[in-house]
Structures are given as C-alpha cells and as structure tokens.
Amino acid sequence: MISTGLIDLTAPIASHAPGPALAEAEAFHQRLTTATELADPGLVFGEWESRERVIISAWVRQVYDEPLAPLLLQGMSADPGIRAEEREARLRETAGMARRISEHRPAVLGRRGTDPTVRAVAAVAAMRAVTAHALSLPSPPPRERLVRDVWSVVRDTVLGAQACDRRANTPGRPGW
C-alpha cells in the first residue's frame, strides 16, 4: 500500500455522488422561471436595457444559492431526461429573451438588426456559461459581482457594437 500519510493512493476511487433526479431538475427550473417571471416589469418599465437588467439580475440571484446550478447549467448530466429538461429550460429562456428583444425593437437592434432569436441564443448561452463557471470555482465571486458580470456579457451580446460605443451610428461617424 502506498500512502502519503493523508491519502491512500491505492484505494479504489469512489464514484461521484449521483447527480440530481429529474424531479429536482424540474423543480430547479420552475423556481428559476418563477423568479424571472415575477421580476419582469413588462413593457411599462421603459427601454429594453432597464427591463432586461432586472430580469437577468433576478435570474443570477436565484441560481447563485442553488446547489444544483453548476451541474445543471453546464448540461453535463448523464441522465437523458435531465438533459432534455435542461434543453427545454434553455429554449424557454431563449424564447423569452427573444420576445422581449422583439417587443423593444428597433430600439435594441436598429432597423436592420440581427434576428432577435440569434441574439437571444448567444446571450442565454453566455449567461449560463459565465454563471456555471463562476459557481464552479472553489471560491465563487460575490453574488453582486456575478450579477454585474453576467449582465455585462448579456448586454454586450445583444446590443453588439451599440453597447461598446453608443456613438457608432452618429451622423458623420459611421459604424461597421
């Protein structure tokens, strides 16, 4: 037997604890959906940025304290039912964001902007990846920093060059 004094290197490696059950994954997504639906102030709130920031903030705050979030957001479950549930949740999030972008168009995308669904797919993927990564770290960042980081990525993904330089479409100063 080889021993370091702390760990028996010849002992069989224990398998990972089983992942969440389908019911747990469904309950996680239901809590997330409820939190974001309750946070949505609707069209009366004004521009897309203000509205979406409230929704994204609620989403991040909800997943921050969820122990299952890193596993589920990465879509790494071996269970096909859980993977299907996660895919459906991602599609619902994407459809919701695309609808909100469309409701505020052309202010968000301009008259010749990209299809709102394309922007929403990219933004939701980025939101989930950044959050899953942060929550998987040995020391996750403070919740409010993660809220700011995720919002920054979503905003830049949806608004593109507009988010980086609001003057891009100013007369005499053409954008790409």
Rank of each mutant, 00 (worst) to 15 (best):
G46I: 08
R148M: 03
Q62A: 10
R128E: 00
E37Y: 09
H104A: 15
R99P: 06
I56P: 06
A107E: 10
A168S: 12
A122M: 14
D165I: 01
R100H: 06
A126T: 00
P18H: 15
G19T: 00
A163R: 10
L68N: 04
D115F: 15
V63K: 03
L71R: 14
A129W: 10
E37K: 15
V147Y: 09
L38S: 13
V108R: 02
E85H: 11
T4W: 11
E52T: 05
M127Y: 02
L38N: 14
S50T: 15
G5Y: 08
R111L: 12
E49N: 11
Q162W: 08
E24S: 12
A129P: 00
R92L: 13
V154A: 03
S50V: 12
A132S: 02
A84F: 07
R148D: 12
P138I: 04
G96D: 02
S50W: 07
E93Q: 14
R105P: 01
C164G: 03
R173Q: 04
Q162V: 04
G42D: 01
A168V: 13
L68Q: 05
L43C: 05
M97S: 07
I82A: 02
L159C: 00
V158K: 01
G175D: 04
M127T: 01
W176R: 09
R51V: 07
W48N: 01
V124S: 00
F28L: 04
P142A: 13
R112L: 13
A107D: 04
A78L: 15
A35L: 01
L91A: 13
Q62E: 04
L91E: 14
A21I: 03
R100N: 00
F45M: 13
D65G: 15
V147T: 07
I56T: 13
H104N: 12
P67I: 13
P41G: 08
V147N: 06
E24Y: 09
A14G: 01
S77Q: 12
A23R: 14
A125D: 10
A125N: 10
L43P: 03
A17V: 10
S15H: 10
P18C: 09
R87N: 08
Q30T: 12
I13K: 14
A89G: 05
